[in-house]
């Protein structure tokens, strides 16, 4: 069983997934941060592949990506950093990044290396479903890598049903029509959208992301899905203080 499925099998509620950018704040921080996140009680980890032109991301993730790139981070180096991933990490690890660096790395090699280092799934926001089905799905499946799709408040019901069939592991529910980044609170409009999707009784698990920044927004999102994803708020934490203690205390402030 894919580790992503295992998480949802053993934990029905309050699944916490945390995102951070590979090579940020220091280029060799990737594995350390992953280990500390696991120790602190995170259920799942998403590692961002830095990209020069991340159009779905807000300033926080853009900035962390640019700094990582400036320091010399690359997908190639990330795969090297993750060589020993499974010596230390037992929770699911997902890579999140844009399609262009993946294509330049070589799509087949990317899937193969993901499998070798123990990556469970990928989120590639600018890989559309049609292209996925026509060109990429077979290779993902061959290597057992889950491709996770996004849905937004604007995604049509018909499309959601199709994504429900095609997505593996879970669907990533983008909480509002927006790029990534911490927001104030959850609006009634968002709640309506969460409830609408909840009532569709999809067979696939749902995690809510974008704008989840603290215990309050996390708990709120968890009412409508199996769990939630925190990204920009954690990057902000890393920018202020990326020490083991600071990371443990950040995760603690959400799960405890």
């Amino acid at each position: 069983m894919n580790r992503i499925n295992e998480v949802f099998f053993s934990k029905k509620k309050n699944v916490l997934s945390i995102y951070f950018t590979a090579g940020y704040p220091k280029i060799d921080d990737t594995l350390r941060i992953a280990r500390v996140l696991q120790t602190a009680g995170t259920d799942m980890i998403e590692i961002g592949i830095p990209y020069s032109d991340p159009i779905a991301d807000g300033p926080t993730i853009q900035d962390s990506s640019q700094k990582a790139l400036d320091a010399g981070m690359s997908l190639k180096l990330l795969m090297v950093q993750l060589q020993d991933l499974r010596k230390y990490i037992s929770i699911p690890v997902i890579l999140m990044g844009y399609i262009n660096p993946v294509l330049q790395y070589g799509f087949g090699k990317f899937c193969q290396d993901c499998k070798e280092v123990g990556i469970d799934g990928v989120i590639i926001p600018d890989l559309p479903m049609q292209e996925y089905v026509e060109t990429y799905q077979r290779t993902f499946e061959e290597y057992g890598i889950y491709n996770i799709f996004l849905i937004t408040p604007q995604t049509s019901e018909r499309r959601i049903l199709r994504i429900n069939e095609v997505s593996k592991g879970f669907v990533y529910m983008v909480s509002s029509a927006s790029i990534t980044g911490a927001k104030q609170n959850v609006s009634q409009e968002q709640v309506d959208y969460f409830v609408r999707i909840q009532k569709m009784n999809l067979s696939i698990e749902r995690l809510i992301g974008f704008g989840i920044s603290n215990k309050e927004t996390f708990k709120n999102a968890c009412k409508y899905a199996s769990g939630a994803i925190i990204g920009s708020a954690f990057i902000n934490q890393l920018s202020k203080d990326a020490s083991d203690e600071a990371i443990i205390s950040f995760v603690g402030s959400i799960v405890n």
């Binding site: 600018d126 799709f149 049509s156 983008v174």
Partner: peptide
């Protein structure tokens, strides 16, 4: 060509 856009832009 094609339309490689995130779901948020797709509609």
């Amino acid at each position: 060509g094609g339309a490689y856009v995130p779901e948020m832009l797709l509609p």
